[in-house]
């Protein structure tokens, strides 16, 4: 193991843990009933949409079929496992 590699890895580990605790800690400083906390309601779906949008944009017919199946099943049944398995199978079939 080389010292430069270890330094980079340990530095990555430190800043990553800091990002994981910073938002939680900061939101606590603002108080439980702060308006920022109430505004957080739509952040989870916004983050998820932002993560997946560029991935969806790269997809072809097979991927889009899978995406539609995945979302429809989730909306209709709320069954995460069923949605995942059915959408992956859809993509494999279309390919």
């Amino acid at each position: 193991m080389r010292i430069a590699n270890i330094t980079a890895i340990l530095g990555m580990a430190l800043v990553t843990y800091l990002t994981r605790i910073a938002g939680f800690w900061f939101a606590g400083r603002l108080g439980q009933s702060g308006s920022l906390i109430r505004r957080m309601k739509y952040v989870p779906c916004a983050v998820l949409a932002a993560i997946v949008a560029p991935l969806m944009a790269m997809g072809g017919l097979a991927e889009w079929s899978g995406i539609v199946v995945s979302m429809l099943i989730m909306i209709l049944t709320r069954n995460f496992l069923l949605s995942l398995v059915a959408s992956v199978l859809t993509v494999v079939l279309f390919r």
């Binding site: 779906c45 997946v52 959408s87």
Partner: peptide, 21 residues
């Protein structure tokens, strides 16, 4: 690609996203 597992990375997020609606 053949096993469709590359798509599973996307499907995890589309399912979770639809679950928030």
């Amino acid at each position: 690609r053949k096993s469709g597992l590359d798509f599973a990375f996307i499907a995890v997020f589309t399912a979770l996203l639809a679950g928030t609606w």
